[in-house]
Each structure stands twice: as structure tokens, then as C-alpha cells.
Write a protein that binds this DNA or RNA. Structure first.
Lengths: 276, 276
DNA sequence: AGGACACTTACGTGGCGTCAACGTGC
DNA sequence: CGCACGTTGACGCCACGTAAGTGTCC
């Protein structure tokens, strides 16, 4: 309307377009570089020109970023071949809820530490450390709750008492699970082959962690067999924030692991399968 | 007791020492590199040897890291020349509480978005964006509450109504404050000179943001004068999560800025505006 | 003498910020 | 012609993980 340059449709220079969505020009460069948001036109000399039609896309990106998705996830979500947005939102909400719980326990720990371990300008480091450790073990007890089934936990706590596990020890276990799951998540999201050596190594660690607490108990071992035989069986072993990405990937990897190591452990001698 | 190698005192190899504190060897390397934790001895061939006396230090680091301090902050806290631990803990607790509030609002936003904007496999992006924006503006309204005094906020909301500010607009202001404060924090923690050009540029942005909402109102302008005249006056303008580091630094920088630009401003204030 | 350790060097991660050196547009 | 804008390229941040290639200890 302003008689400025609307012979076709409004085209924006980077800084104009950036302001419309509240991002910087550098961000536009970066998104362009990633292929996340390509400007709909260029001048002959390589200048980026954004159109009104580009705005919704950018707004979607900004919105999803605010929700806490990574750019990689956003790319998949917007490419309409990834998982549905609804599922992703639910997952993200649960992940954030977990983060919130973690934050809560840390805040609680600080509060306790303030009243107990720090007086004036001297610090009782030993008391401090104990407080933190307790909270840490407690919040990782929460993880155990989520990762092990009801009956598995009973056996676990029985063993913990019998073998006199310390809070430190338990914290270590929780840490290992967190670490392993994170690795699996990264591997899965980078599209690693579940049959490859990297994934198989992860599978081995996974089984080790699981058998570490079954202590060779045959009842639980049976459950493990079911685990990588039937992808649906994982619901009996795991509960939440194990997201689909992780559980699907590890299920595949464990199945392959079980097949390749079949002779030594089970009756199931399934034929080989080639993956992509 | 084991007659192993206790002629002097127990010396640990990296992996042994690392396990005692639940960290990796790489972490020990890294801390050594940073000067955060130097092993108390070396073999002739450059191997690190940690003693029992090194353990408390490492445990302190790990503990503080769990609390959420960065390694840079930990270094200052342990060097006993930084701020007292008590103050740092309080600050960190408040910072985390703020993060938690943010998380809460994001979770809330997702929940709303799930019920309202996403149905099946189609997404109402426009509704989605509005929900997020509202929550965002709301949580940044919270920031405004913290950064502006009571009376200042009254004037602000009056102007907001009078000039018909959108939620988007308000969100931008909140963003700008967050951004600016972050920059100031970084500058302060890197030991930048408050009188240097970088800090003075920050001061200018700071004043602009403040005057942007006073709209030249003389009552508030007076408050601003007091602000960089009297370091204690900032309590009347700011409230929380503005930590000491930031407020002390910006107070210094603003004072210097006020001195160097003294002649041109005084109390009158000609309507010089070159804003967009 | 072999295997488990150690060492240093250097790149990868995420999401841009921030120069630097140079070309374009109004 | 000036100057605000644009471009690509590269490094910085944080706290390490993860090799790669080589030396040392038990």
C-alpha cells in the first residue's frame, strides 16, 4: 500500500524479516545454513529475500523452540514425516516435568544446605556433601522407580538390604542408567544402525545393567528374554520417561543382539535379517 | 595394611581417583587443564598422582556442580576471594526457582496447546502460536514485576493501555531485558572494565530500555538520576533475581556513564529522539 | 611381553554471538 | 559518494566425550 516496492508481493530484507519474528539476522543465516528455513528468493548478488509466506514457518520454529525442542527435532516435526506433533508434545511435556522434579530436588538441597552446612563464612563441607548426596540418591531412587517394574524393584531393594548397598552405590547405578539412556538417545536420533557395532555395544551395556540387579535370578532373567523377544513387553519392565525413540531403538538393538548371540543362551534361533 | 605401596601415603592413579568421586578420567584431565584441580604429584614420566588430600577438593567441585554452578563460578567460590558461599547459594537457589517458574509456564503452555491447537494429525498453528505467546508474555510480565518498582509498573501499565501495546510487544521488552542482563552478567564475570567502551555501550542500552518505558516522565527520570548516583538506590528500582554481580557492575558502569555524559542531560531533557 | 593403564592433541556437541574482511543498495 | 546494510568464514562459548596415535606400568 505504501507504494514502496510492492510490484509483486512484499519482500523483506533480512533485518526487517528478523524483527517481525523477534530473532536476529544471524539466526536467519543459521537456519538457512541448516536448511531449516530457506528464503523464498535471492537477488542476483546473493542477498536473501524473505516473503510473507516465509513468516509462518519461522513463527513455527520460534514457537517450537520456546517449547524446548532442539532445532533437529523441529526440523523433523516440520518435515511432516517425523512423529506427529501431538505425540511429540506429550513427550516433551513429560520430559520437562521430569526436569522440573530434578530442579525441585536441587532447590530443596540448596535450602537444606544453607541452613545446615553454611554458617557465616565457614562451610561444613562434609555435611554439605552428605546433604547433596542424599537428595541425589533420593531423586535417582525416583529414576529407579521409573525404570524398573514393581516386582523388579522389590527384588532390588531386597538385594540392596541384603548386600548392604550404600546411598552412594545406588546413586552410581542411577547415574549409569541416565548415562546409558542418553547415549542410546543420541545414537537413535543420529540414525545409527541398531545392528552396528556401536549399537551392539550399547545393547551389551544395557543387558549388563539389567542383569547386574537381577543377580542371575531366573524369574527376572525370563522377563529379560521376553524383553527383547517382544517389543511390547518393555511396558512390563519400563515405565515412563523412556521415550519412544529410545525404547524402540534399544528394543531393535536388543533383538538383534539376542539373535546374534542366540546359540549360547536361548532356544530361539531366528533367521538373520538385513536392515537398511 | 595391605603392604602394597604405603611407604608414604596413598597415591592414586587417575582412574582410581576418578572412581572415588564418580567422575571420569577425562574430567580430571580437564580440571587439571583449567587449573581447577591439580594433582599433588607426578611421576617422572608425566603421570598424574592424586593423594588423599586431593579428594575433598574434587568432592567440593562435584557437589557445587550438582548445585548447578559453572566451573568458572566454582573456581571463584573455592579460591576464597570470591563472594561467600552463603550468598552464592542463596543466589543460585533464586535463579533455579526462576528457572522452575519458567519451566512451569512452558509445561502449562504445552498442556493448553495439546488440548486446544492439536487435534489428531492436523495442527492449528495460529492458535498454537497465540497460546505460547500469551504464556510467554505472562511469564515475562513476571519479569517486569521483578525489574520495575511498584510505582514504575503502574505508569508502565497505564502507558501500555493508552498506547495499546500488544502481548507481542511486551514480550519483546521482556526479551530485551533478559538479553541485556545476560550480556551484563557475562561482561561482569569476565572482569570487563566498567568504564570501557563495551560496558559503556551496555550502559547506553540499559538507559534506553529504562527511558523507553518512562516515556520521558520526569518523576521516573528523577528516579533514574538517583539510580546511578546512589548505588543503594537500585533497590528501589529492581527487585530480585538481579544478582549482585550484575547490579554492582551495571551500577558502576552507569555511574561512569552518567559522569562522562553529565553536561548534556542534567534535569531538563530536550525531546531528542532518534528512535524507530 | 602383553594388556591395562597413561599421556597429549584435536575435533564434535548446540545455537547462535561476535568479529573480520569485503561486496551492495538506496 | 557515503553509509547502512548485506554476504561468507571463522572462532568463541561450556563441559567434557570420543577417537587417534603413542608412551609407561605391572
Amino acid at each position: 500500500m505504501k507504494s514502496h516496492s510492492d510490484r509483486q508481493q512484499a519482500l523483506y530484507q533480512p533485518h526487517q524479516f528478523a524483527r517481525k519474528a523477534g530473532v536476529t539476522v544471524r539466526t536467519l543465516h543459521f537456519y538457512d545454513h541448516l536448511g531449516l528455513l530457506k528464503p523464498s528468493d535471492h537477488t542476483g548478488s546473493g542477498f536473501r529475500l524473505y516473503s510473507e509466506a516465509d513468516l509462518p514457518r519461522l513463527q513455527q520454529i520460534v514457537t517450537l523452540k520456546f517449547i524446548g525442542f532442539s532445532l533437529r527435532e523441529i526440523r523433523r516435526l516440520l518435515s511432516s514425516k517425523g512423529p506427529s506433533l501431538a505425540a511429540a508434545l506429550k513427550l516433551q511435556r513429560m520430559t520437562l516435568a521430569e526436569k522440573r522434579r530434578q530442579l525441585d530436588s536441587v532447590i530443596e538441597a540448596i535450602a537444606k544446605a544453607e541452613t545446615v552446612a553454611v554458617s557465616g563464612n565457614t562451610t561444613n563441607w562434609e555435611a554439605f556433601r552428605k546433604i547433596i548426596q542424599e537428595i541425589q540418591a533420593q531423586s535417582q531412587g525416583h529414576w529407579l522407580k521409573d525404570y524398573y517394574s514393581e516386582e523388579a524393584r522389590k527384588l532390588l531393594s531386597a538385594r540392596a538390604k541384603a548386600e548392604n548397598w550404600t546411598a552412594e552405590h545406588q546413586a552410581k547405578v542411577g547415574q549409569e542408567w541416565q548415562d546409558l539412556i542418553q547415549r542410546v538417545r543420541r545414537a537413535a536420533s543420529r540414525g545409527v544402525d541398531p545392528g552396528g557395532s556401536a549399537a551392539q555395544a550399547l545393547s551389551e551395556r544395557w543387558l549388563k545393567l539389567m542383569t547386574a540387579f537381577t543377580g542371575g535370578n531366573p524369574a527376572i532373567e525370563e522377563g529379560l528374554e521376553k524383553l527383547y523377544a517382544d517389543p511390547n513387553a518393555r511396558r512390563t519392565v519400563f515405565r515412563m520417561p523412556l521415550d519412544e525413540i529410545v525404547s524402540v531403538f534399544i528394543a531393535k538393538a536388543l533383538r538383534i543382539y539376542g539373535e546374534t548371540h542366540a546359540g549360547s543362551r536361548s532356544k530361539a534361533g531366528a533367521p538373520e535379517e538385513e536392515k537398511k
